[in-house]
Design a protein around this nucleic acid. Structure first.
Lengths: 224, 224
DNA sequence: GGGCGCCCGTTTGTTGACAGTTGACATGCC
DNA sequence: GGCATGTCAACTGTCAACAAACGGGCGCCC
């Protein structure tokens, strides 16, 4: 058994920790609607644990920005105003534009080759099933962050991405942006291959701006 | 009683919440050394509460990156490797360089005038007491973040700043960088007054790079 | 003498119960 | 009819006790 697995088991070896990931998945999967209140008694019973570990998990998810806790009233799945969604995309822009600059400076040629492989694979998958959602496990963004090698930026970005994912749960419709996103990704990778940090940063900013427009539109917010 | 105060009272109206801020202050004030373990029983007794609320506060501070919780072993005041400190400064660079660009684009002339007033006041205070520490309540960085008007970026930056503050607790010596920082701040504000986003971003990057060097040196790490 | 395994005190993880607060409903008054 | 007040059930905040896990110390075996 390798260390990573051991460490993961250790990290999950407690009700509180396991509940945290279960709850997070429930929130992000849409099993709990934004604004919905968490009833500690019934949820803890449903999960087969007591209120203590559940409350601890709630505290962590609140610190992560997925729950809003109000004293003596309870924990609610977080809702987002338009300005908050815009702020989150701006946060991602700040972080991920810096990430691609770092990748341009630091990544090996093989790693960058892997990026274009990734885009090509996604292209083929999308050609085979044109209306499918963008395959999450082939996510270019997480790959880029991994290549940047900065765990702190990685955590911050992941948090912002999750909050955006939750915000989009407020709308039923998911805009079919897969093809557009793919084109933007291709342009982004092309800039990285040239190791042109400025151009790569602009490509990322443009990509995120387009994603933001799509999100705001899906949420019924007036996109400027 | 104004709303802000009411909201703050509400937010602090519970042992768990109050303990969170008390504990955070204890950690950042240096009352608890990095690496030190928190004994839940003795600390809860010292605070006059039970272990439940204390544990909840610990969970939130762990999510904030100030504590490290290891299953069945306890919560420890976080320690930092050199690479982690470097990552944090890189994170701040990504965030705060974006912040100053936003300020250049969005801040009013009066707000920018306020920035130079701030630098001037700090200058005078530093001239009166040359060896004093950099006055925290006149912190230019938080002012800039406030002017950017982005709460999400603000929270992320605050978290990074606090982690750096904690990391520096691992070293006794605080480098006397106040005068240098002031000069860098002045250059930064000058660029903002010209609303030159590129130059302001570069000034912020240079300022943070200098701060990073100072921090790494104080921590006894080999600065590259 | 050194290494291995067991045991026990200490500390954390979890539970169930109690107390205080909130929001909603019903009642009474203007 | 509308508004203020009182009451009540439901829920959260807190506590104290129980159970499991960890690690240090001891003795035993080689």
């Amino acid at each position: 058994m390798n260390d990573t697995k051991q460490a993961r088991l250790d990290r999950e070896s407690t009700f509180s920790r396991r509940t945290e990931t279960v709850l997070r998945d429930m929130i992000l999967d849409g099993q709990m609607a934004p604004g919905e209140r968490i009833n500690e008694v019934s949820l803890s019973q449903a999960l087969g644990i007591s209120r203590g570990p559940l409350r601890e998990a709630i505290q962590r998810l609140a610190a992560e920005g997925l729950l809003t806790v109000i004293s003596h009233r309870g924990a609610f799945v977080r809702t987002f105003e338009q300005y908050q969604v815009e702020e989150l995309y701006e946060l991602r822009t700040a972080l991920e534009c810096h990430v691609v600059r770092l990748v341009c400076e630091r990544a090996s040629d093989e790693d960058i080759e892997g990026l274009s492989d990734l885009v090509r694979e996604t292209d083929e998958m999308l050609a085979a099933a044109p209306d499918s959602a963008y395959p999450a496990d082939h996510d270019l963004h997480s790959r880029l962050i991994a290549l940047s090698g900065n765990e702190a930026i990685g955590r911050a970005t992941l948090e912002a991405q999750r909050q955006i994912l939750l915000a989009r749960r407020m709308s039923a419709k998911a805009p079919a942006r897969a093809r557009d996103a793919l084109h933007e990704h291709r342009a982004l990778v092309k800039a990285i291959q040239k190791r042109d940090a400025d151009q790569a940063g602009k490509a990322m900013a443009a990509h995120l701006a387009a994603a933001r427009r799509g999100a705001l539109e899906a949420l019924g917010f007036t996109s400027d």
